[in-house]
Design a binder for these strands. Structure first.
Length: 261
DNA sequence: ATGTCTCGGTTACCGAGA
């Protein structure tokens, strides 16, 4: 079972590289974030034609939006609301093999890491708090993927010291992420395969010219599993090359995880 | 402070969000 997560930064603007990902890496379950499309306009036919006709989508106009496409049917699917905002940041599917896949797009949090003056940062912290409470009560076996918008470890960013005051790597965010990991004893799948202190990133800003050479990356995209699924992990990798696919790449690379089930 | 993208509203650019 191959599960891939990718922040696509508008699915309709990047159908060419979504097709490339599906053809070259053959995910069984593809989780997308920032689809930026309302549900009636989602390119269903495109995924059907590529052999992934089973879709669970939660979109809204212009911003956010999540989707799961799969080769095989789901047992069920649903979306949860976070922070009472009614926005499109979560979609879940229960696989017929028994595991539930939760696909998240956590708020980015704006520029200023101070909840007193930045509502977007306050929203991000509240969102993570709700994920912590939810994780405490969550049933196994679960898989959590998506753009969490936090790079937890010093080796998840290109320069730990320089990023301590930059939203995505501030202590208040990384502390919450470790509390969140603890809340379900989540297994950080990529770090099982690529252990610390090796550097590992999944996002490189559009604003950094020559992104690959500069390599000012951050690991914002994650795949976590319940403890009971740890023995089923068979591999994981960030498709770094994916950051450069197409004429107009996403600023995120796809993350691939393989399981024996 | 800057850099660069997408989307949508009102246009052949601009503001917001990331």
């Amino acid at each position: 079972m191959r599960i891939v997560t990718w922040n696509i930064n508008s699915v309709r603007a990047r159908l060419d590289i979504v097709e490339h990902l599906i053809r070259t890496h053959q995910p069984d379950v593809l989780c997308l974030q920032e689809t930026k499309v309302m549900d009636p306009d989602f390119p269903r036919r495109f995924f059907e034609d590529l052999g992934m006709p089973h879709l669970a989508i939660k979109g809204q106009k212009s911003h956010h939006g999540v989707a799961i496409a799969a080769k095989a049917p789901f047992a069920e699917s649903y979306s949860l609301d976070w922070c009472g905002k009614g926005d499109a940041r979560h979609i879940a599917v229960k696989l017929t093999t028994g595991q539930t896949v939760h696909n998240f797009y956590v708020p980015a949090g704006g520029d200023e890491p101070d909840p007193a003056i930045n509502d977007k940062f306050a929203h991000k912290l509240q969102f993570l708090d709700e994920m912590i409470e939810w994780s405490k009560k969550l049933a196994e076996p679960s898989i959590l993927v998506g753009d969490i918008n936090v790079a937890p470890h010093p080796d998840d960013v290109w320069n730990h010291k320089q990023l301590l005051k930059v939203v995505s790597h501030t202590p208040v965010e990384t502390d919450k992420l470790f509390t969140l990991l603890d809340a379900h004893q989540w297994v950080d799948v990529c770090r099982e395969i690529v252990p610390l202190p090796e550097k590992l990133y999944s996002w490189w800003s559009y604003r950094s010219p020559d992104w690959s050479n500069a390599d000012k990356g951050r690991r914002l995209d994650h795949v976590w599993t319940s403890p009971s699924l740890k023995a089923a992990i068979r591999g994981a990798k960030v498709l770094r090359d994916g950051r450069g696919w197409g004429e107009k790449p996403s600023d995120h690379a796809p993350v691939v995880a393989d399981f024996e089930f």
